[in-house]
Design a binder for these strands. Structure first.
Lengths: 110, 110
DNA sequence: GAGGTTGTTTGACAGGTGTCAAACAATTGC
DNA sequence: GCAATTGTTTGACACCTGTCAAACAACCTC
């Protein structure tokens, strides 16, 4: 057994995170909803009903999760068939202080 | 002479301002730059060299200004050939408290 | 190992987007 | 009034994007 299970999907380094790209990634209703969910600290599967995105195809959800990750917003660990996604809170706070807090405060909690 | 010179270009009401649309509007390098400029309280013309966008066609700048206005970020008064643009700071603060502050703090001041 | 589950990748397609150019409209100055 | 200035609108065009579907890969379960 390895010390840490699963492997991380590719993501940009902290210094390569760009504000415009972050805002572009969040400028979509579906991704803004995913952001709010991950901001709450929970980790879901792609096609989970609990995402409130049951009407979207699983490949569409997978696409949105990739956009969030490549923008530097989320970090994803692949373990078996599951993906454990979490917000890169520390990295984002270090690079853009106060931004995530303001976004969480105003993102639709649903 | 009228009490207030010029007329306002159409803009959404405060309650119609949508967070995803705001983030979408700011998810473009040019518009994020315009946002940072207007956030500083200054008001420029479209094709002003001081915008640091001299390489862009005037119709392109006009397009970006329209997107910012229709997203509810800016307010524009037309006086003669000039457009006086300002951030809708009060409206935005009322609807999404802390958001503009965090954005200004992290937007490239240049 | 067979079959079902979970997520990614690719292709396709309609619709949106950023840019320029040209035409247009309104204004200012001579 | 005529010409120059300033910004908008429209058209064109390449590119990007959100969505689905199908194929694929990895995994779990029996």
């Amino acid at each position: 057994m390895e010390p840490v299970e699963g492997e991380w999907l590719p993501q940009p380094a902290v210094e390569d995170i760009d504000l415009a790209k972050i805002l572009h990634a969040l400028g979509d209703p579906v991704r803004l909803r995913l952001f709010a969910i991950y901001a709450s600290g929970e980790q879901y599967n792609c096609s989970s009903e609990r995402l409130g995105l049951g009407h979207l195809h699983k490949s569409t959800v997978s696409h949105h999760m990739r956009v969030l990750r490549e923008a530097g917003l989320t970090s994803t660990r692949a373990v078996g068939r599951n993906r454990y996604v979490r917000l890169r809170r520390d990295d984002l706070d270090a690079r853009y202080p106060g931004l995530v807090e303001a976004l969480i405060r105003n993102a639709p909690a649903d």
